[in-house]
Design a protein around this nucleic acid. Structure first.
Length: 558
RNA sequence: UGGCCUGUAGUAUAAUGGUAGUACAACUGGUUUUGGUCCAGUUUGUCGAGGUUCGAAUCCUUGCAGGCCAACCA
């Protein structure tokens, strides 16, 4: 009865407050947002925050969201990125209303520029970029306007036409807005509107050799689409006066820009430039390397879109710089995977366990639940035999006080099978343990246990005869320092060179042979895993998504 | 040394002049056939200084700290 109240208790972020006011005041009847990536790289978890914000707002207020590619710089952009971006947004679970491109508006943008020229608000400048930079002044020093600013409207119009017609080389001329060379806001000191680039564009081909700058494309694109709330990151705050200036001078739909703080995550980088460097310089094996904070990398690593959306929900939206602890992300993925992951047993670092009182040729099928969190998840059968593999570190000859795994004289439960008691271990000439000997307690079988014993430890195991060889890839953080962005020196100095461990021969229980590409697994006591795209029928390959929370490991460190 | 933005537990984020709350992290304990999950609990906070007010995280003054801005990038 009270459920509606409960749902409404969650407080609004500052953008939701603005939207609710706008809706209430009648400024807008509905909400139209946009997600405006530049197709020059792959999307990362920081973009996911923006995607969840833009699409989430539209969903919450019954509006919609356009996907608009900000493709005004043909030199760095490519359809490869367009495709990956669309794929990532869809995978995250969002549907856009229209798929649009800033390049769709090139003709209109050109017209807008002519309009400004006619109003005496723009001029063609022949200066070099060095001269322009010099005349711009500095934040504390006003700039000076050069002699080209006084050209006649006719001359400006003609030169601008000639720029478009290809009469000039790259860099020979630019179109500039005429605003205020003394403004304390550097972006208002006659900003560049158009530059010449004789470059092939991934959509418009060779039709254009002049391209609008971000500031002359973004706001107008928003306005042409009737975007009500144009949401971007903090570094665009100083651009807002220019955004508003263009809309005002051209008398367009009054889209408004709002800025929020971008996501920063511990132990990783979030800049496309740096990520591109990691890829190009082979620190990782591509954009979808599971160590990358890219959407595609996280997806390959086994993160679910649910968990990423949940993460974006929990980090909140505000205007202060932030550095989110990656453990929150890990918490979100564990939370989801715990509910959906099928439990399996896999031994990574095997040592043989022999049950000396168990018949040599006997194969007994034991039943184990697929997911204790999901009663409907069913059970599977696992072969149990005299010779098993267990983890080497689940046995210690001289165990400390609180160690409750195997040690001579101790009893442990073999998961879903029997309680066993350790009777000794065999070593080779180097003192390495080659075999652990135990006796099993026949009356202690799982589900039919009449032993009355309650050993503290439970171990995972795999029958030697039935073990399936597989490869397991263990990932660690990509960087050694929490705040990579603010760490001293080059960011590459802080790369963790030990972020990938390949276990080429792990032993998996037979049920894993039927793994499917999109399934999530929990290898009991090991962590959450998924099938890698390089996995084959002959050699299965698993990625570790995230470890289980391990309070024992933490205790040991102390 | 110009302009703009931001300061609430370790990290984020609420409280919109009226009991500083929530999540993650950390730490205790309980349950457990995963040292997982689950449950119960503990620790930790309003950048500083003045002022307004019965009452300030919130308003005012001032100081301090951090971030952003001078690409023919977005």
């Amino acid at each position: 009865m009270e459920e509606t109240n409960k749902a409404e208790e969650k407080s609004l972020n500052f953008i939701e407050e603005i939207i609710e006011e706008d809706l209430k005041s009648g400024k807008h009847q509905s909400v139209l947002t946009r997600f405006p990536p530049e197709p020059n790289g792959y999307l990362h978890i920081g973009h996911a925050k923006s995607i969840c914000l833009n699409f989430g707002l539209a969903i919450k207020y019954g509006g919609s969201t356009n996907l608009r590619f900000d493709d005004t710089n043909p030199v760095t952009e490519d359809t490869e990125y367009v495709d990956s971006i669309k794929d990532d947004v869809r995978w995250l679970g969002f549907n856009w209303k229209n798929e649009l491109y800033a390049s769709d508006y090139f003709e209109q943008l050109f017209g807008f520029a002519q309009e400004l020229i006619k109003k005496g608000l723009a001029y063609v400048d022949d200066s070099s970029s060095e001269e322009i930079a010099k005349e711009k002044g500095s934040p504390t020093q006003p700039g000076t306007r050069n002699r080209f600013a006084d050209r006649s409207l006719e001359e400006n119009l003609q030169l601008f036409d000639e720029m478009r017609a290809g009469k000039y080389r790259d860099g020979e001329k630019v179109l500039r807005a005429k605003i205020d060379m003394a403004s304390p806001n550097m972006h208002l000191r006659d900003p560049l509107l158009y530059r010449i680039k004789h470059a092939h564009h991934h959509r418009t081909g060779d039709k254009w050799c002049i391209y609008p700058m971000y500031d002359f494309a973004h706001g107008q694109s928003d306005a042409l689409e009737n975007i009500t709330h144009s949401i971007c990151t903090l570094e665009f705050i100083p651009h807002r006066p220019l955004y508003d200036w263009c809309i005002e001078k051209l008398a367009l739909f009054p889209s408004h820009q709002y800025e929020f703080a971008r996501l920063n995550l511990t132990y990783t980088v979030m800049s496309k430039r740096k990520l591109l460097q990691l890829v190009n310089e082979k620190y990782v094996h591509g954009w979808d390397d599971p160590r990358m904070p890219t959407i595609t990398g996280m997806r390959r690593r086994g993160y679910t879109s649910d968990s990423i959306r949940q993460f974006c929900e929990r980090i909140g939206v505000a205007k202060r710089d932030n550095l989110i602890d990656v453990s929150l992300l890990e918490f979100c993925v564990r939370e989801h995977l715990n509910k959906i992951a099928q439990r399996r047993m896999v031994v990574f670092d095997p040592v043989k366990l022999v049950l000396t009182n168990y018949p040599a040729d006997q194969v007994e099928m034991v039943s184990s639940e697929n997911n204790p969190e999901d009663p409907a998840g069913g059970h599977r059968e696992i072969p149990f035999t005299r010779e098993l593999y267990i983890e080497r570190d689940d046995f210690m000859e001289n165990a400390p006080k609180k160690y409750f795994r195997l040690t001579p004289g101790a009893k442990v439960r073999l998961k879903s099978a029997y309680i066993v008691e350790c009777t000794g271990a065999i070593k080779d000439e180097n003192g390495i343990i080659t075999e652990i000997h135990c006796e099993y307690l026949p009356q202690s079988k799982s589900g039919a246990d009449t032993s009355g014993l309650k050993p503290q430890g439970t171990l995972h195991w795999v029958s030697c005869k039935h073990a399936v060889d597989s490869e397991v890839r263990i990932y660690d953080r990509l960087f050694k320092v929490e705040d990579v962005g603010n760490a001293e020196g080059d960011f590459k100095d802080h790369i963790n060179t030990d972020s990938l461990h390949v276990i080429s021969k792990a032993y998996a229980e037979p049920a894993l042979a039927e793994s499917t590409a999109d399934a999530s697994y929990q290898f009991i006591r090991k962590g959450y895993f998924c099938i890698d795209k390089e996995s084959t029928a002959e050699k299965m390959v698993f990625n570790r998504t995230v470890t289980l929370k391990d309070t024992w490991a933490k205790d040991k460190k102390k």
